[in-house]
């Protein structure tokens, strides 16, 4: 609850409590949309089920449009919105590890807990692997802290790097997303999977 807790309108504990409520809501929606099935998630990579891609990209472009319109109306100051800083090397390496784990395990961290909460054994195994990974990273930190911190770029926006205005980039991204959805639906027809 960004502005409320930063400006100390609500206490740290209230903030955690609200996070708890929102987390339950998030988990509930994930589970109800079938995201607790590892087959649904891995389906993105095999082409037979691309709901995950569509859901997350729709969320991203909706939020993006919302923020840009809010900024247009003067309701929000985009320069104050926190942007996660970019460490290029670890972003790429982490992305590869995350993607590989996604295909092999069929879960991302959030959905694995979602799956575990309804008693799925593969989700529990996935969570076990997640903690092993955390331990290896933490205990071996000295081995890869150079790579972890390499290529720090600050918090650049893609629109700045390309020299476009935020609005033009947003429009391009919408076009890209819609084309991806179209390809995804084509793939679902092309590589159907019957048995689940």
């Amino acid at each position: 609850m960004g502005p409320l807790s930063v400006n100390e309108l609500i206490s740290e504990n209230t903030n955690l409590f609200l996070a708890f409520i929102i987390g339950i809501g998030f988990g509930f929606v994930l589970e109800q949309s079938g995201f607790s099935s590892s087959r649904k998630l891995a389906g993105v990579f095999y082409g037979y089920d691309t709901v995950v891609l569509k859901v997350f990209f729709t969320a991203a472009i909706t939020a993006m449009l919302g923020l840009l319109f809010f900024s247009l109306f003067g309701w929000i100051d985009l320069s104050l919105v926190y942007i996660n800083p970019t460490y290029l090397t670890s972003a790429i390496v982490g992305g590869i590890i995350m993607g590989a784990g996604f295909i092999i395990g069929g879960y991302c961290p959030g959905t694995s807990f979602c799956g575990a909460s309804i008693g799925k054994l593969d989700a529990l195994v996935f969570i076990g692997g997640l903690f092993i990974g955390v331990l290896i990273f933490g205990l071996g930190y000295n081995l890869w802290d150079g790579m972890y911190m390499a290529k720090f770029l600050g918090s650049p926006k893609i629109s700045q790097t390309l020299g476009l205005s935020d609005g033009v980039f947003a429009f391009l991204l919408i076009i890209i997303a819609l084309s991806m959805f179209w390809v995804a639906e084509w793939a679902e027809k092309k590589f159907p999977r019957e048995e689940y």
């Binding site: 472009i61 935020d166 609005g167 076009i175």
Partner: peptide, 13 residues
């Protein structure tokens, strides 16, 4: 969503 994108691309920041 496409018209919304067009609007946001057209207006100045």
């Amino acid at each position: 969503i496409v018209p919304m994108g067009l609007i946001i691309a057209a207006v100045p920041q």
